[in-house]
Each structure stands twice: as structure tokens, then as C-alpha cells.
Design a protein around this nucleic acid. Sequence first.
RNA 1: GCGCCCGUAGCUCAGCUGGAUAGAGCAACGGUUUCCUAAACCGUAGGUCGUAGGUUCGAAUCCUAUCGGGCGCGCCA
Length: 711
Amino acid sequence: MKPILAQLSAAVSDAMRRALGDAATGVDPLIAPAKDARFGDYQCNAAMGLAKQLGKKPREVAEQIVDTLDDAALTMIEKPEIAGPGFINLRLRRDFVETTLDAIPPAAEADRLGIETVDPSQRQTVVVDYSSPNVAKSMHVGHLRGTIIGDTIARALTFEGHEVIRQNHLGDWGTQFGMVILGMWHAAMAAHRGEPPKYLQRALGELRSAVAAGSEAKLAYLKQVAVRSRADYDADPTGTQIFEPFLHDCRTKSLLDLNDIEAGYLYINALTKEAAGTPYAADLKDPKDVAKMMQRGAADDAQERLAREIAIEITLRECNRVYRRLGVQLTDQDVRGESFYEPLLSGVVEELRASLHEYKSAPDGTRAICRVDQGAVCVFLEKPDGSPAYKGPQGDPLPMLVQKSDGASLYATTDMAGALYRLAHAVRHPIQLRSEKLATALKKLGGGLGAHRVIYVVGAPQKLHFEMFFATVRALGWTRQPDGGEARLEHVSFGSVLGEDRKMLRTRSGESAKLADLLDEAVERAEAQVRSTESDADKRRGFSEEEIRSIAQTVGIAAVKYADLCQNRNTDYVFSWEKMLALQGNTAPYMLYAYARIRSIYRKGVESGQVSGDLSRSAIRLEHNAERALALRLLQLPETIDAVGDTLLPSVLCEYLYDLAGRFMSFYESCPVLQCEDAGLMASRLRLCELTARALKLGLGLLGISPLERM
RNA sequence: GCGCCCGUAGCUCAGCUGGAUAGAGCAACGGUUUCCUAAACCGUAGGUCGUAGGUUCGAAUCCUAUCGGGCGCGCCA
């Protein structure tokens, strides 16, 4: 099955060239699906523009195009009509629709309804960077969108035939990480003192109440912690007596879980903040020191490194649980956390200083220069006319910082390193580097991924950062391909999830809602819904307990995912249980219901012997309007998937599926299948049902949703 | 102050490479069940597309201004 839109475009384009000569060569035929069925199935809007250019009447141009359509085109479409100011209305021939559907091969493993993959010459290596949870923080609703949008994009591009490399940019670096490790140190010392488990949660609670009780209580608390910390530190100054054994035990005995290390992070964060400026700050280790220690890469920082590894393991275990529930395809193999790029960081700074010592320009004319400002290594970006491309609040040029004045690297540094790693390739895309150090480090990492396209699925607030970061990468020339093309860097930004009060979604307790809890609630609500229909004698399907739970799982998770994916990702969206679990409207339950209805027809047909194996040999006959409308939509699946790969908007696919399901529902109401008197027509309708089910399954599959046989 | 995103039916949102009479769902009103899952379907009503200019044969869509909301703007990520 080939995209109809592309076939029509090719046919009309061809006619335009023959009818109008050079003037129309290479001009977009502007084929679009017709908005109103009365105008046919597709329309060509090119005649008006061309007429103006040629100084002719639009309808005349349209006529010329129509008259020049060749026989091949006329096997697809009826003789087109010209309407209005010069629209060419294209109506697919019934036999063309029928034979195209007839030609779809039978369902196979990894069914793709005969949709072809891209031509090998068009195949790209695409990096999709998404999800990016942080170590020591359980995933919250803020991670939901990026995770499922990225996963859908990755699936769609894979389906198209591209080589997709998923990258989970785990937040496992920086000062915050020092806090996590310090938290673990406190836990180790507490365990050594014989404190019961969950020490960090209690400590966090104590600190918070002390702060709430006023400055006197706070200082008393800080003093106590400082004195104890000093003693703890003196008892084990090298960390080898208490801390290190504790870390090893973490692995073997699961002493800490994600909640513990998250509490540790929060505790140290608050502790550092509250202690700042008090006499006790000195006795509390500074998280920044720990972070810096790791960055030095010295051998005696082994404990910090071990602690980091353990924290990462604990975090990923939890993330993987969520991914599996969500049907997200990320695994540990895809994790390339910030720390992965550590070996490249100093080389990146060196490279920037060497390579951007003088101005360099990106293809769009933006120019970049790297210099030290206020002790920090900065990349300044300027428009072609020399004015700053970005400004700060005082109107002063806003640079992108790649190294802090204290020598530490920043997230822009990591991103630069990541871009290099993703774009470069030892063979396909060698990048000339001035920094020998960087070249060597890159080689050690395998030389890079050689991506033609790098997609960053990250929230909208980081838009500015990505603009600056992309501009810098382009100015360096890292995107320039050996064949002269440019690799694409794309920021797929998305808005926030809001509660029904239009504020950031929070749980009843006021915390940012944990993703796992959200999914639990979704399943609970879905289950309540199923039970409620099951308790109604007229509607009952007679599900077993196990079936009810399984249906609730699928419906609940699918509802959450679909509600998010069907929304245009650019805007914030209001989270509503009621809406997402509704059986009407653009929701997962509606789509799943449509699928279940089709499967039900099949089961009934098999029971009664009306459905037998040789169905695929009977021809499709489109007699009823509802049949035709459904069939036409089925043909549009390939172009819809291409549109998703193009726009990176999963909502485009949802829109399609909703419309397809809606057309099936109409067909279902007006075209009896198993009751159909005409055996040939019944077979045709069964095939339409079958194709619709397969299209729904395929489309939902790209969203990471598997359909239900019954619901 | 500057930049980005958004403003479409009472509510939640589609539509925005300019194209014909601006679409869904919810809410409101009316209809459909001896018939394959009524958790459904069909219909009615509801709009100066924030406002004002401009470009164009044609603007919700592009440009300018303006109002309203959100976000961002050097050593966090």
C-alpha cells in the first residue's frame, strides 16, 4: 500500500509539467484531502497560483491540467471536476479503491498492511532523545509527555524504515548528584549508629519541622547534625570503614530504595540551603565538593563513583517498571546519561576555545565566538549583522556558558558533547576537531553514532537553550555532512500537564504527582468503570475477575497515554480523568471499543461458520457510502504515518485513528455484516472489518497501545 | 525590558506549508435497541476565530500593532 497523496501528487505534477511546461515544473501540486466529501476525496489547489504567475485565468489553467492527466492517472481517479475559483476536485475511482485494498497482503507477524518502508537511499540514522529522568527522583507527571511522545516518534520513524537510536539522557551528573551521594553517606552513618531503616525520610521530616518551628529550633537542629556529622566523618575519614561497606551492602541487600535516595537528595538540598551562612555550614560537607571530586576523576573518589552507580541502578529499576507499564520501549541499553559524556567534557571546552577563537557562521548566518567572560567560558551568538542573537534582562548579550568560573562544566557542555557523539561517525561522518584531547576521547567512545537527524524531546521551557545550543553546533560545522547536506537538529518541545484547576498537576497532598501513582489511579478508575457495566444486567458481558483486571489495566494506561498523545504537544493540556476515560470522543476507550466490536463480529462469524479461511479471496465491494468512506480512510494510513515522521506530532495519528474509528462506527450502524443477505457483500464487509482492525492495531501500536479482543 | 508559546462554540480542544459553507467531544435539546458489544449511532442548536490595521483573487492560517494568559532570559538542569 503506497501513500495515495504521493501518487496523486506525482500524477498531477506530471500533468502540470506537460500542460504548462517549465513554468509548472517542480511546482508543488498542492494536493490535500478534500474538506468536504462533496468536493471529492482530494483537491488540487495549484491552479490559482499558477494562473496568476502565467497571467491566465485560473479555471483555464485547471482545465489544461485536467485535460493533460494521463491514462495512468485516470485509473486512479475519475475525470476531475473544476469548481469555484479553480479548485480541481479529485475523486478516487471506486475500482481503484477496491483493488488497492484487495491487494493488501494478509496479516502477518509485525503486520504493516503492505505499507512499504522508505527507499534505502532515503534511510536515515535518527537519534531520538527522550524521557530523561533524573537519578534519585521518581518519575512524575512531568516526565509522562516526553516519554510517550518520544516513544511514539521513535516507533513511527522505525516503522518508516529508518534506523532509530533511542537515547535516554539520564540526569546523573552535576551538583545535584553530589547531594544524592551525601544523602547516601548520611544513610550509611545512620545505619552504622543502629538507626532503623528509612532514616533519610525521618531526617527530612525533622529538618522541615525544625525549620517550620522558627530560627532557634532550626539552628539547634543544624548544630546537632553538624556535630554528629563531624564525629561521623572523623570516625571514618577515608570512607573505607563505614561508607564503602554500606555501599556494597546496598547492592546485595537492597538497603535503599528510590524513595530513600530521593529523600536523601531533598534532605541534603534543604540542609545545605538552611546551613548556608550559619557557623555549621563548615562541618557539613558541601555537595559541590562531592560533585567536583567526581569530575576530577581521581582514584580516591572511588566511593563517590560507586555511590553514583548504585543510585543509578536503583533509579533505573524504578524507571524500567514505569516504562514497561506504559509500553515504552526504552531499556538500559538506551541509557546514555550525562555521565556518559564525562570523558568528552574538557575536550569540548578546549575545542570550543580553539575552534571558535574566531567567528564562525552557521548556515543561517548566525555566527558564534567563544571567549572567557567573568571567568566563565562562553559562546556568544550574533546575528549576521553583528548584533547579539540573544539578550539578557538588561539588554546585554546573553551567551551560552560551557564552563563555570570555578571550572565545572554545565549542561550545555554535556549537550555539546552529546551532539558531537550523536552526529559524528568514524566512517560516515568524520568531524575534524582541533582538540586532540577531544578527538581521542571520542574515538574511545567508538567514534559516534553518525545521525542524520537528532530529535530532542524536551519540554518547552528549554526552548531558548536548544536554540543557542543548536546554533553553536551548526556554527562549528558539526552538522555538515560529507555529501554537503546538513544533519537536522530538532527540539520537539511540549507543554506542561495541568490539573483541572489549570495549575501544574499535583496530588492531593500537594506534591508533584508521581507517575506510578497516576497510573495506579487510572487503572483503578478503569476497573470501577468495567465493574459498573458488569453489574448492569443489560450490559454485562460476563467477564471473569481476571479479565476485568486485565481490561482495566489496558484501558487505564491507554487512556492516560492517549489523552496526552492526542493533544497537540505544543500547548499545555488539562488533565481530566473524566474526559480520558470517556467512551465517546477522541479517547483510548473509544478506539479500543471500536476494535473490540470488530473482533466480536469475527468471533460471532466464526461460531456460526460464516467466517472461513478463504475470505481474502473474495473481492471488496464498496456499495454503501459508509463502506466507501471507511475504505478511503484506510488508504490514508501510509500518508498519515509519514506525516507523523515529518511533523513529529503524534496527535496527527490520533486524529486519524479517531476518524477511522468513527467511520467504522457509522459503517457498523448502517451496514450489517453477518446479517447481510448477499454472500459476496458479506465477505467484502468482513474484509473491511478485518482491514480496519488491522489499521487500528497498527496505529495504536505506534502509540504503544495494544488493543483488546473484548471489553 | 527583550524573546518564545498561546488566545477558535458555555467548557476542553482540532484546524494554522493561505483555499470553497471554521470542525470534534462534553454540556443542552430531540431521535434510534425483535438486528453483529447502546460504554454506541443519528440529528438540532450554539462562532464578528482576542482586537485593529495590512498583504492577497481568497486570511482562523502570513505581516504589523495592540490587549489578555503562560513560559524563558550567565555560572541549576
